[in-house]
Design a protein around this nucleic acid. Structure first.
Lengths: 183, 183
DNA sequence: CGGTTTCGCTACGACTAGTATCGATACTGA
DNA sequence: TCAGTATCGATACTAGTCGTAGCGAAACCG
């Protein structure tokens, strides 16, 4: 039987994608602090109150935005070293996208002293990759978390210090270093 | 000859150390965002205006605080691998100190879209270590910057995600990984 | 058309970075 | 002792920010 086609009332307009896009472009142009919720809403063409009806805080919005922007890892193959390389390149490409690194830094800043936000960050953003990588790389969870720290931390630190994404040759050096760790 | 004993006027009170300590403890207790300049000044027992007479912005104050808190690297010995290990442990100890990681994340966030602050960050905080390590490790500057990204980035990412400093066994794994890279 | 839910809009309270001002204070040199 | 100078503390202020409240309008159902 049809499970109650649709609840009554005005349907929730599907603007999540536009809000995520507006969030990243605004953060990219102005930085996390000056990317106010007002401006993000204006860039998305909706009202600020609509944003607060869907996400409880600016930090939660940006975290959801990051989860959406990263998306799933490329599927694992047969070769652990190639899977690792693909995962690192995946992370490097994402973090090089405009606004991502700034969003990351801002959420980290907000997450300190806001345990709920850190919980969201760890659960929604890190855990999925931890699970997939634990299986595809055949490592302990502790080891996988260490790898994630190295990959994401290194890429973000480069972006934070220079404002530019890590050059390809350094990404390859990062891959080689971690592959050696795999043997 | 004595180079003009002292300029006229009321001497600048020496409260930098107290301000730095108050900055870190306040950030540790409240996080970067809620560690307002008002609260930092109150914790240091001085007026907010005195802070703004010495540092042009909150970001600059916190950056100066980080420079002061990190201090110089332990002197280099004869063994590159031991020097590297000492440098990593040095960074791990500093980043584990209360408030340091939160201060770092906050400055990164502020530095995006504030090129002057990023300049200060790169010049005053990173460059001294880059210079010393380039000599003691005998690597290219590009390679040293890569090492710094890996060490500081990894340690900060762990703090940002978990709120806890990296455990000793993982720090040792980080050292071993980079030492292998040295050969 | 009546019922229900979301939307846009405006206004608002609490808080923050950074600036301006002014009298009080601490030191120098005579 | 007394001017001269530069810093300090305190207060007030501007501009901006997060997040919430309230209201009428809009979009969907039966």
């Amino acid at each position: 039987m049809a499970p109650s086609a649709r609840p009554p009332g005005r349907p929730r307009s599907s603007v999540d994608a536009e809000v995520f896009a507006a969030t990243l472009t605004t953060i990219h142009e102005l930085g996390y602090t000056r990317a106010t919720v007002d401006r993000i809403a204006a860039a998305a063409g909706i009202a600020k109150t609509t944003i607060y009806r869907r996400w409880p805080s600016k930090g939660a919005l940006v975290t959801a935005c990051l989860v959406d922007a990263f998306g799933p890892l490329p599927p694992a193959g047969r070769d652990r070293e190639q899977d690792l390389a693909a995962a690192v390149r995946f992370g490097a490409r994402r973090i090089a996208e405009p606004g991502i690194a700034a969003a990351f830094a801002g959420v980290f800043t907000d997450a300190i002293g806001d345990p709920e936000l850190r919980q969201i960050l760890s659960t929604q953003l890190q855990d999925p990759y931890r699970q997939v990588l634990t299986e595809s790389l055949g490592l302990s969870e502790q080891r996988v978390l260490f790898f994630i720290d190295v990959v994401i931390g290194t890429l973000l630190h480069r972006m934070g210090m220079t404002g530019e994404p890590m050059v390809e040759s350094d990404v390859e050096a990062l891959i080689a270093m971690l592959q050696r760790e795999l043997r």
